[in-house]
């Protein structure tokens, strides 16, 4: 099962990004192999539709769970339609590594 964590940087020690559509990076964590791959978000500066594009990308990557700070209404609808679990973490100072540790536990 794959999980996407929105990240502000390209490595595990980076800060978790609370934005969804405009997050800098997406960390794709695979629960079977325990490996994480970082994918750059190309829509960080988009004027509109960033959430929708990010959600489409996540559906394409065959991810079942997304961890972020908040989801826009369009992204919510889309993720809901494709049965992707949405998780909202509201801690400000948390790194991607800390979230992965929780998932592994």
């Amino acid at each position: 099962m794959k999980t996407v964590i929105t990240s502000s940087g390209e490595n595990n020690s980076a800060q978790f990004d609370k934005r969804f559509g405009r997050a800098a990076w997406f960390c794709v964590f695979d629960e079977e192999t325990k490996e994480s791959i970082f994918v750059k978000n190309t829509n960080t500066n988009a004027n509109n539709g960033a959430g929708t594009k990010a959600a489409e990308r996540i559906v394409d990557m065959n991810v079942q769970k997304v961890i972020s700070g908040d989801f826009g209404p369009k992204a919510k609808d889309l993720l809901d339609k494709f049965n992707v679990q949405m998780v909202i973490v509201q801690d400000n100072d948390v790194t991607v590594q800390e979230i992965i540790e929780k998932l592994k536990a």
Binding site: I67, N83, I88, Q90
Partner: peptide
């Protein structure tokens, strides 16, 4: 842990995805 989340139809467990 105060985490908010959805449980889509494809997931059967009713538990917190982070702290279980």
């Amino acid at each position: 842990c105060q985490t908010r989340f959805t449980i889509p139809k494809t997931i059967e467990e009713h538990e917190c995805p982070l702290c279980k």
